[in-house]
Design a protein around this nucleic acid. Structure first.
Lengths: 213, 213
DNA sequence: CTTTTAATGGCAGGGACTGCCACAAAGACG
DNA sequence: CGTCTTTGTGGCAGTCCCTGCCATTAAAAG
């Protein structure tokens, strides 16, 4: 018997749908273009048509790939959150969180710079801020799964959900703080300090005693 | 000497500006109308003109009072958050949080019902969800002020900010849980259970040990 | 090549907002 | 009282975000 699962494409006619991975890469590329435009001219002054032209697609397909203009920043911000998710998932039971963060919490420097720029611009752009918050919330189930495993509780347990949301909030607050801490030089010790601080707060949250009976 | 502060209106000419309080009441009234329409017809099917007519104002003034269509739900949701802020502020040092919540965490039942309905609808309405999350975030400085006072730390201390965000997140998660827990009968014991659960999670968060040196 | 399915692009249109201006409301001052 | 000054409201035109629809193209299988 075959070990490969049947994806239903055996003898299938017609053009195959694009891979989910391809779609993600494409959205990310457009996102980078959009953020560049947003940074240069501001969000309100950047039109959907400009984004589409910069990305080399028609406006129609742009609106198929993104629900709103502001949500064009989402894939880029996701790079940052995905990096953190990777940290949580690869966190060995024994390791010290600070050390692990230092080793595993990495991403392309130019993406990091762009992410921090978006976070800064989200202060005066409510639409962008909303995307940032919604994106953070969407990451919570993943956090809950990781935390639940660590605590030996189901991922939909209320305590686990609350704690996942708390971890999420800590990550957001500290990311904001990093973005606003003299953003001129993110490659300096600020990043390390940010990571240490994050590790410290997360340890406090994850070492919380279980709920009383 | 006079004790009343000079508001600069002495001998002032022209029509006096509308009170902030009046503006808030007006926005809340429109918000109730908008939510009623959203519940009846859905958000996408409700037009700005309809909201304006239902509220008895011109469309032009509607857009002066609300940035976007979805943000019309904000003042109503604020009722819920303001109630919690009131709880935090009036929380005596000695009292047990659960008891205090039970006594002070109250609001008009019809508003509560509408708030829970909006929270439920926010699951499939990204715009509404965004308003809910942004509103929650805007409450964090208030939480930070209250927590900072309790911990004897400045309100802009990073640890205080993180903890305020965690409290905020717990409130949001539990509100969501309440909204989805068989919303047919919010007047039953569900509400009390929600409050107890909230008190429990908040106690865990607020009793966190201070950061290690 | 034909058939079939998926993706794109162009076009028309609705509706959310905004800038602008005229006008009404509400007070101070003569 | 009328006049002046400031503030809020309504109406209108216009821009742009975004959607539904259809024709066209791309990529496979037969």
């Amino acid at each position: 018997m075959s070990t490969a699962p049947d994806d239903g494409s055996a003898g299938r006619r017609g053009r195959p749908p694009v891979t989910e991975e391809e779609r993600r890469r494409r959205r990310l590329e457009i996102s980078r273009q959009a953020v560049a435009l947003f940074r240069e001219h501001g969000v309100a002054e950047t039109t959907g048509e400009q984004i589409a032209r910069a990305a080399g697609v028609s406006e129609r397909t742009l609106w198929r790939l993104f629900r709103t203009k502001e949500s064009c920043v989402e894939p880029l911000l996701s790079v940052s959150l995905d990096a953190f998710v990777h940290v949580l998932r690869s966190w060995p039971e024994s390791a010290e969180l600070g050390e692990h963060l230092r080793a595993a919490y990495v991403m392309p420097p130019e993406d990091l710079e762009a992410v921090l720029a978006v976070v800064r611009m989200s202060r005066d752009e409510p639409g962008v801020r909303a995307v940032w918050l919604v994106l953070h919330e969407r990451a919570e189930p993943v956090f809950a799964a990781a935390l639940g495993q660590r605590l030996g509780l189901p991922a939909d347990d209320l305590t686990v959900l609350v704690r996942a949301a708390a971890v999420n909030a800590a990550l957001r607050v500290l990311s904001d703080a990093l973005a606003w801490s003299d953003g001129a030089d993110p490659s300096s010790g600020m990043l390390d300090e940010h990571r240490d601080r994050l590790a410290e707060e997360l340890r406090a949250l994850t070492e919380l005693p279980a709920r009383r009976p």
